[in-house]
Design a protein around this nucleic acid. Structure first.
Length: 304
DNA sequence: CAAGACTCCTGACGGC
DNA sequence: TGCCGTCAGGAGTCTT
């Protein structure tokens, strides 16, 4: 599922093909793709077309997991790939085999002035598109970019202390830190040796420093490998799978052995999310129940 | 403020 | 073989 590294890859590969192009026609194959939260149900197709037709694409950027096509006339085409969204540029005449196979999942088509076509493909229909003048009309509250200058170890430590939330859902919260998803949160927490249920204000200073470095390392490596592909869904706009899945330490490895300590990786549910961790490298926080129940006290005595 | 439930959607997969 | 139920998951919204 596209997270920061995947969207960054998409944006980098689309940039040379899109910058300078003009949108000359738009076909919406599924109007629901415009249902944008926080914009009164999203733009009517007519408005969406009016805002974009004839615009020249000036830049292709990323913010969090959103892609942003900045156009002249101060209009931006903004979108989210959610689970199964893809963007590809096809030479209109000769779509590749991959593109032909995806035909039934094409939700929007943008014809460009050089004869190519930008396709927005999305099997599960979770992805969305919109067109706005100011970016903050479309984007919800977002935390800092984890690869940007604002994300420092000091900032992270202060923020962790000022919240009292489980680490997994906190790092998934885009208003806290923007761009991490299920995969990279699990990978980062493992690398930092922090249990996904650990409460944020109990994370020690050295752990916060390690987590900061882990997030940066994991994301940077994942970007350099063009993201992660482990199912049929994520492919780069050039049709290649990413390579970072080869480096997964925990994600999708439940039952397999931790590469650091050879303990079997566990899969659990944390905040309604499938969560992978190593029970030895990432020690579980002691819950009040564990501390106070009679049975645990008996266990402790038995153990000692 | 935190956390859980529920929703959207469809392909994949397990069970029989 | 084929049908059917279940699951996955980003993020918004609603409830506890």
């Amino acid at each position: 599922m596209p997270e920061l590294p995947e969207v960054e890859t998409v944006v980098r590969q689309l940039r040379p093909r899109l910058v300078g192009r003009t949108v000359i026609a738009i076909t919406l194959r599924w109007a629901g793709v415009l249902a944008w939260p926080g914009l009164g149900g999203g733009l009517p197709p007519r408005t969406f077309r009016q805002r974009l037709l004839g615009r020249r694409i000036l830049a292709v950027d990323r913010r969090a997991k959103y892609f942003v096509l900045r156009c002249d006339g101060a209009i931006s085409l903004v979108g989210h790939l959610r689970m199964t969204g893809r963007l590809v540029v096809t030479p209109a005449r000769q779509p590749s085999d991959v593109q032909r196979a995806s035909q039934r999942w094409v939700r929007a088509e943008f014809q460009l002035d050089d004869g190519t076509c930008l396709l927005y493909i999305d099997t599960r229909k979770f992805g969305r598109l919109t067109a706005v003048r100011a970016l903050d009309e479309a984007l919800p509250e977002l935390g800092p970019e984890p690869l940007g200058p604002q994300f420092t170890a000091q900032w992270l430590q202060a923020q962790l202390r000022s919240h009292r939330r489980q680490m997994k859902p906190l790092l998934l919260d885009q208003a806290f830190l923007a761009g991490l998803g299920n995969i990279y949160v699990d990978e980062s927490l493992h690398r930092a040796g922090i249990h996904p249920r650990r409460v944020s204000n109990e994370v020690t200073r050295p752990q916060a420093v390690r987590l900061h470095r882990a997030i940066r390392t994991v994301l940077t490596r994942a970007v350099s490998r063009e993201g992660s592909s482990f199912d049929a869904f994520y492919r780069t706009p050039e049709g290649r799978p990413g390579g970072y899945q080869d480096e997964f330490a925990v994600y999708g490895r439940s039952g397999e052995l931790c590469r650091r300590c050879a303990t079997p990786i566990q899969k659990t549910l944390v905040g309604q999310r499938g969560t992978h961790h190593c029970p030895r490298c990432q020690r579980a926080p002691q819950t009040t129940r564990q501390v106070h129940t009679r049975s645990s006290r008996a266990n402790l005595q038995a153990a000692s």
